[in-house]
Every structure is written in C-alpha cells, then in structure tokens.
Design a binder for these strands. Structure first.
Lengths: 197, 197
DNA sequence: CACCGTTTTCAGAATGGATTGAAACTTTTT
DNA sequence: AAAAAGTTTCAATCCATTCTGAAAACGGTG
C-alpha cells in the first residue's frame, strides 16, 4: 500500500510552495502586493512562528522586502509579532482564523478605498445640488443612486465585519446557503467531503 | 428663482471630471485599469451614448486605449454598443443600474480570481490527502478551513448576484441593516451620515 | 559607552502593466 | 471593386510599483 517515502518533507514543502503561489496570485484581488501575500501564505499554512531570516530564505526575497511586507501585514492586523525568551529575534505568526483574516482585510480596504470614495461622492453631489441648476439634475440622480449603493453596501459590510462576531457564518445560514447549494453551484470540479463546524 | 449662470455647463463639466477622477481611482479596488474605470465613469455619469472620438477627446487618451477599454467594458457586461441610424459610428452606453453594475463586476471577478484559486486549493489538498502522511495533517486542516471559507463565500455571492434578482437589497433587509439605509433606498433622496448599528 | 545582533529605511534598479500610434483590418458607400 | 469611414491589434515605449542592498538606526549587554 501507500509507501511512506522518506522524502515526505520534500513533498510537504512542495505543497506549501503551491499554496504560497496560489495565494500570492490572489494578492492582486485583495489589493496587496504579491510578496506580502506570499509572506502571509507562508505564515498561515505552516502555522509556525518564523523570523525574518526564515522568511527571506524560504521566499528568496531581500531583507528590506521582508521587513516591509511584515510591517504591512502587521498594519493590516493579520499577523502578529511574538517574542521568544533568550532570543533577540522577532518572530511572526499569522492569525489562524480565516474569517478573522477576511474581516481584517475587508475592514482595511473599506477604510482605504470606499470611505474616501464616499467622501468624494458626497462633495460632488453637494456641489451639484447647491448650484441648483436643472442641467445637473440627471447627474444628481445618478450620484444619488451610487451613494445609496455604497452606503448600503457599507452598512452590510459593517454587519459582517463588525465587533458583533462572525457575521458571515450567520449570514450564510440566514440566507440558507447550504453545503448542498454550495456544491451544486460549483460546476465541474467539486467532489470532496469537507466537513466540520 | 434659481439663478442660471451662463457657466452652468462648465460647472457641470467640472463635477463630471471630479466624478471621473474619483471613480477612476477606485479602479484598482475592482481590479480594472484606471482608464477603463474612467471611461465607464464618463458613460455612467453623463448617461449619454458616446462614440470613440467623444471619449478620446474628453479623457485625452489614444484611440487604441479607448478601443481596448471599451472592449473590456463590454466583456465585463457593464456597457453596451448602440447603433444610430444614418450614422456609421458605434456609440456606447453604460448600464444605469448600480446594482447591476456591481453584480457584473463581482461575477466577473469571481470567475477570474476565486474559481481558479479554489481549483488550486482543491488540487493541493487532494495531494496532501492522498499522501496520507501525518506531517501534512495540520496543513490539511488549514487548507480545509480556507476552502470552506471560499466555498461559503462563493455560495453567498451567488445568492447575491444570481439570476434570482436584486439579492443585495434583500440581504440588507434580512440582516436588518438600519432601516435608514434601506428606506432611503427610494430614488431621489438621501441623507448624509452612514453610521448605523 | 562601545559593541553586536537585529530591524528599518531609502535611493536606485528592476519589473510588469498601461498607453501610444500607426498599420492592418472590417464594414459601408458609391 | 475602390474609396471612405471606422475599429482593432500590437510592438515599442512609458510609467508606477515593487524590490534590492547597503547604510543608518535601534536596543540590549558587558
């Protein structure tokens, strides 16, 4: 039967590499740089506390790059520093709760992107309004529609990521998204038995 | 009587410029290029059907760039071509329904980013599984957690953007996102101050 | 306070994505 | 079928962001 090869560790490392690559590619989606995503991937998937040198070596990146990525990841609140007694190095661990990671990222992105956009939209609309010119009324309506959308979306997001807890899971059940629904929604590949609570 | 300044059009154009700029800046968030977002902004906010030359002139971009942006926007399904009788040019109009725009964008991003990620994650997990090595079991768990998250999120998103209709509005009420947000959902009016709880 | 291991900073180099512009192509008109 | 009008493609170029590497700063220790 399945022989347990001595190169099990090498296999494991390969899998880790693949995960890092996949997650790094996602970086753009979340608006973070590839390297930053890779550093996070490494910390998340290993679950270990790693120091800067570990990360530099594993990812083959410069010290400066590692330092900056780690800093950003901390700013985003998805990794934290840990100290080891008798060791002068800093170690880093990734938050292991995927929902938390998601919340942190969404919160940060909203703060950086959506909030300023809403400010701009309001400024523009206030301006078109106070001019009171008829010419702008159609534009006004479109601005209104957009502002309304983003404010509703913001409100929704705050529910999800707010301090009230793991809102998404709640939302999932509220909306009746069952495992079945999820499975059948995925066409093509999907045979597997992921399970837990 | 509202005073009707002769520079009304100039003022309007300025407002449009500001909107284009704000929306263009958002481009990165949605993973589309700045110019593409600006073209969309122009079409959306004016509500007009514009031809390539109009867009080139207004945005001061090259023909090639305009052509490619328009093409992408069509691929994303948020603008469409219109034909005018007796005119050989193609004109373009933006979908005026903000919810539809959002749905199109989310659908497209999921197809391009999340689905491939999920495929990769499954491949990696299947691989760590079939090796059956103990060393990988902790990694397995983390992969499981991540897969479960993305599948739930995907299922949720499909609810929102599915053909069933304006799911987000429904979601908003289901989740009890302040009645304010939902009420002001009636077109034409809006009050500042998105805080709620 | 001088030393040593470590982290941060930052100017310049490298990289990759966006943009141009002109040629190639398509469609309509005469 | 040639000309005219409009659109798309793509190699070359531009530009913004990311990355490097070495120097500066930090912070304990003896």
């Amino acid at each position: 039967m399945a022989p347990r090869p001595k190169h099990a560790d090498a296999t494991r490392d390969e899998d880790i590499d693949r995960f890092i690559e996949a997650w790094g590619r996602m970086g753009s989606v979340w608006g973070i740089s590839r390297t930053m995503a890779e550093v996070h991937a490494l910390l998340y998937i290993t679950g270990d506390a790693l120091c800067t040198d570990d990360i530099m070596a594993r990812l083959e990146i410069s010290r400066g790059n590692a330092s900056m990525s780690l800093r950003s990841l901390q700013d985003w609140g998805i990794i934290k520093r840990v100290h080891r007694r008798g060791d002068r190095k800093e170690y880093f661990v990734a938050d292991q709760d995927v929902w938390m990671i998601f919340r942190s990222i969404v919160r940060e992105r909203m703060k950086r992107e959506i909030d300023p956009l809403l400010v701009s939209l309001h400024e523009i609309r206030d301006h078109t309004r106070e001019d009171g010119q008829k010419a702008a009324s159609d534009i006004d309506e479109r601005l209104d529609a957009m502002i309304e959308f983003f404010e509703t979306a913001t409100g929704l997001a705050e529910r999800f990521i707010g301090p009230t807890g793991p809102g998404l899971r709640l939302a999932a059940s509220l909306l009746g998204v069952s495992d079945k629904a999820v499975k059948s929604a995925r066409s093509g590949r999907a045979a597997r038995g992921g399970k837990n609570g």
